[in-house]
């Protein structure tokens, strides 16, 4: 009787000991990852906020509280004007990039998903820009769109459009169209600069393969029976696409929408190479403004405050995406 109790308590003790060892082992396994993520991801996120509270021009200066934020948002007219202009440029850039990215990729993925010869060859080509480095791809793009030496102006010349300056053109595209047609376009309706349109074209080209890849995955999840049942009910091609494909692909479309928007908010390399924020600041997005403030002007405190603001916007999109997709996971 008592022997059994001793054995039992011994077993419990050994179980506890094993639990302790397992705990210690687990933390040992996690230690390297936690150390590096902590030092280069978690702590810096805290420091970003800390730095943004100071005047910090190359070296740390006086504590300013939230004054850097106030300067950016309204107090300092030069700073706040630059900030709101950059934010508006970023939003415009998103508006002329994301919808086209989704629409083109959707059409291509839909066609590509059908039984066709050479699907793999097409796919390999479509993914090429996506794996190419932004710096190299943008360098080539700059040349392709070169006003004199590039192919784009030559092709446009054959339909009567000549002399476009692309990445050096600060004029709005609606204004340019108006001028060509002899219509006076008011300043507020000038539209995005041709340079920004060029950057948008680059982004669409660069990420097309990624979008197609996600949509192909989504199309693969739609059961064939749905189409067969709908066809028995007499649905036509457009109805099949509109009533079955589009709704069942909505998680992927939403995913691409958010990730492409975040991508646009974070875009730096392509703009740096193609226009460096010019001409006349018409392609200076928030990331470019942040870079110039922090790296070229040495205003580290102000730059950090911009970084915090930009991060909040990006995080809002990320959380929004996680919430919506988290709810829909079982559905897909």
């Amino acid at each position: 009787m008592s022997g059994g109790a001793i054995a039992q308590s011994e077993r419990a003790a050994s179980r506890r000991r094993r639990g302790l060892i397992e705990n210690a082992q687990a933390y040992l396994f996690l230690l390297p990852a936690i150390a590096f993520l902590g030092l280069f991801k978690i702590l810096p996120a805290v420091y970003a906020v800390y730095i943004s509270f100071f005047r910090w021009d190359v070296v740390q200066g006086a504590f300013r509280g939230l004054d850097n934020y106030f300067d950016i948002l309204w107090q300092n007219s030069t700073r706040s004007q630059a900030w709101w202009q950059s934010l508006s440029t970023t939003v415009t850039y998103a508006l002329i990039t994301v919808p086209f990215e989704i629409a083109i990729a959707l059409v291509v993925a839909y066609v590509l998903f059908q039984k066709l010869r050479g699907r793999d060859i097409y796919r390999t080509i479509y993914y090429l820009p996506y794996v190419t480095s932004t710096v190299a791809a943008a360098t080539v793009f700059f040349y392709v769109f070169h006003p004199q030496y590039g192919i784009v102006n030559q092709l446009l010349g054959s339909i009567g459009i000549t002399g476009l300056k692309w990445f050096q053109e600060p004029d709005g595209i609606f204004q340019m169209i108006g001028n060509a047609l002899g219509v006076a376009v008011p300043d507020w309706a000038a539209g995005p600069s041709l340079a920004l349109v060029g950057v948008a074209i680059f982004s669409i080209w660069h990420f097309l393969g990624f979008q197609i890849l996600i949509f192909l995955g989504g199309l693969g999840n739609i059961p064939l029976e749905y189409y067969e049942a709908a066809k028995l009910d007499g649905a036509n091609q457009w109805q099949l696409f509109r009533r079955i494909t589009l709704p069942l692909l909505s998680p992927q479309i939403f995913f691409v929408f958010t990730i492409a928007t975040i991508g646009v908010l974070r875009a730096f390399n392509e703009i740096f190479i193609l226009t460096n924020g010019g001409p006349l600041d018409t392609t200076r997005t928030v990331t470019l403004l942040l870079f110039k403030t922090f790296f070229q002007q040495g205003q580290i405190g102000l730059g950090s405050a911009m970084g915090v603001l930009l991060t909040l916007v990006i995080l809002a999109f990320t959380l929004f995406q996680f919430r919506i997709l988290g709810r829909r996971v079982e559905y897909g």
Partner: peptide
């Protein structure tokens, strides 16, 4: 915590990492 670091964009850590 890992999930939080995954969501943290590089823009948040660019300047502090440079200072470090």
């Amino acid at each position: 915590l890992f999930l939080a670091t995954y969501m943290m964009p590089g823009e948040a850590t660019l300047i502090p990492n440079f200072v470090m």
